[in-house]
Design a protein around this nucleic acid. Structure first.
Length: 295
RNA sequence: GCGCAGGUGACAGAGCGGUCAAUUGUACUAGACUGUAAAUCUAGCGCCUUAACGGCUACGAAGGUUCGAAUCCUUCCCUGCGCA
């Protein structure tokens, strides 16, 4: 039995990750583990760019439709389920292909960062949300100077989470990693800015035509609040704003396009420093890399 | 032609004698990321300098007043509105 190996496909939104993962899966007897923080939710298909059954071309996919959009799903849930899926794939002698654009999820899963075992505490959060960032920072500094030294002192969300951990565990533990024990090939899809922008525009048009707004409306009808939809960002946020008539069609299109482009930049900010990633531009280069890696 | 208002950095738009390379918003660029991560947050943004409480050039143009002007005066050019 050959040693199990892992392939990871990353890249900005609209760069072509999905079809590349399918191609690799088909060629190398693999199964795809999606690493996308929105595609985990049931009913969020068009807006999140989820693969369709047809596009899968018979390659099994994991971690799609595993969560209820009305409930919070987190990186920890993802990492746990992802690990299980990968172990299962390996056990069946197939190659797991992690594919997605959510950098934090990939890190949690592949690098196995140990996220502090402190559950979200809504009551505490609600109370802390009333405070200003500098007040939160002072609190953290008093209770856990070590964490305070490394945290972003102006990011309330991070500060609140840190205080939440302190509340549950006494202090924020130092970062530990339990990476997946397989040799791993990281492939990144590189796209120049102009090209990516036009890909994003094209894809958005196609999604709208396919009924993206109907999908968002259906989610709301099925009990997902506007507020929740807005919190999902991008397609769901702007779609919800438009359906509520908070913005007009033109603003919707213009802002959403811009936000998706901005998002793709943030993704690159995340992936770019990772020296393990082999950047490619053509699928055949990815196939070549993978063939060599799996040999 | 006369009257009034105005010409500021990519755009919008403050400033109305010194602390102004110039508030702010947008756009743009870069970055962070320990259970919301498509979320959340930060920084830069005239030119030179690795950098600076350093130098240079700047607020329509040209002169002038002043120790000192984006800010005051004069002339010119341009724009908007009103009247002819």
């Amino acid at each position: 039995m050959p040693t199990p190996k892992l392939i990871v496909v990353v890249g900005p939104t609209a760069s072509g990750k999905t079809s590349l993962a399918v191609l690799l899966g088909k060629k190398f007897n693999g199964e795809v583990v999606s690493a996308d923080s929105r595609q985990v939710y049931r009913g969020m298909n068009l807006g999140s760019g989820k693969v369709t059954k047809k596009e899968m071309m018979g390659v099994p996919h994991h971690l799609l439709d595993v969560a209820d959009p009305k409930r919070i799903f987190t990186a920890t849930h993802f990492a746990r389920m992802g690990r299980k899926a990968i172990e299962d794939i390996v056990k069946r002698d197939k190659t797991p292909i992690v594919c997605g654009g959510t950098g934090f999820y990939i890190r949690a899963l592949v690098d196995g960062i140990v996220i502090p075992d402190a559950k979200p505490n809504p009551t505490l959060r609600k109370r802390l949300e009333k405070l200003a960032a500098h007040e939160l920072f002072e609190m953290l500094k008093a209770k856990d100077p070590e964490r305070a030294a490394t945290i972003d002192p102006k990011n309330p969300r991070r500060l609140i989470r840190a205080l939440e951990i302190v509340d549950a565990l006494g202090k924020v533990p130092t970062l530990k990693k339990h990476p997946l024990p397989y040799p791993t090939l990281f492939i990144g899809i590189a796209r120049d800015k102009e090209m990516l922008k036009s890909l994003i525009e094209k894809r958005l048009k196609a999604r709208l035509k396919a009924g993206m707004l109907v999908e968002i409306k259906r989610l709301h009808t099925n009990g997902v609040s506007w507020k929740r939809l807005e919190s999902f960002g991008l397609e769901y946020r702007y779609g919800a704003l438009f359906l509520q008539k908070k913005i007009d069609k033109e603003t919707f299109l213009r802002e959403l396009t811009k936000q998706i482009v901005d998002y793709s930049k943030r993704q690159m900010t995340w992936f770019r420093p990772d020296a393990r990633i082999h950047w490619i531009t053509e699928p055949k280069d990815a196939v070549r890399l993978a063939a060599k890696f799996l040999a």
